[in-house]
Amino acid sequence: MTPFAKPTPEEHAELLARIGPLPLRGRAWPRWIGVLAWLIMLLIAGRLMVTASSAAGQQVSPMVAAAVLVCFAALLVMSWGIWTSVTEISEYGLRQSWVTRREIPWDQIQSSKFIPLVASKKLVCFVQKGRPVTFQAGTPELQAAFAHISLIYRRRP
């Protein structure tokens, strides 16, 4: 058996049955991470306003000010993505809305690894060609499903 042997159709059907009724949808990031992201954005916005209204802020180059505003806008987009992102497990495969859409059908997954970090529980799906695709689970149901997927789609000796 190759290190990337896929599960049998029976194992895959058992996995989908164990996950529960599909599609399974949930927040990609825990709510407290979204709240924390927005609190940090409020702090940064407040600090930017204080600095911009000070004497030192009036002397900043317009190019530097534009660069700071572009970076702040990028952080706003990331915070919005954290707050609104949804992960879905279906008969098709896995999907996650993000700044860009992440998706992978079941037949493209070669192996997977569940990474239980403090702030986010992740499932890294390795494909035959291309980069691995990472999905986040912000709900206990998705976290349990990720653990089951990782067990079935693990590298095999």
Rank of each mutant, 00 (worst) to 15 (best):
L94K: 02
L36M: 14
T87Y: 05
A37L: 05
G130H: 10
I44Y: 06
Q96S: 07
P7L: 01
I89F: 06
W80C: 06
T100Q: 10
G34H: 02
M1T: 09
T139E: 15
A55C: 00
A144W: 01
R101S: 09
T100M: 11
A17K: 14
Y153N: 03
P30N: 05
G130Y: 03
L42E: 12
S150T: 03
P62Q: 09
G46A: 09
W106A: 05
A67C: 01
E88K: 02
T8C: 07
W29P: 03
R31Y: 02
L43N: 11
R155Y: 05
A137H: 01
L75K: 00
P21C: 00
Q59C: 00
V64Y: 10
P157A: 10
L42I: 13
P140Y: 00
R18T: 08
I44M: 14
R156H: 10
L39S: 14
I152K: 02
G26H: 07
L117F: 09
V35M: 08
R47F: 11
A56G: 13
V99Y: 02
A145Y: 01
W106N: 09
A45N: 12
M1L: 09
M49F: 12
T51Y: 15
C71D: 11
V127P: 09
L123I: 15
F146K: 06
L43M: 08
L24Q: 07
G81P: 02
A147P: 00
A73R: 00
M78Y: 12
E11L: 05
R31K: 12
S61C: 05
G46F: 08
K113Q: 15
A28G: 14
S61Y: 12
Q58P: 01
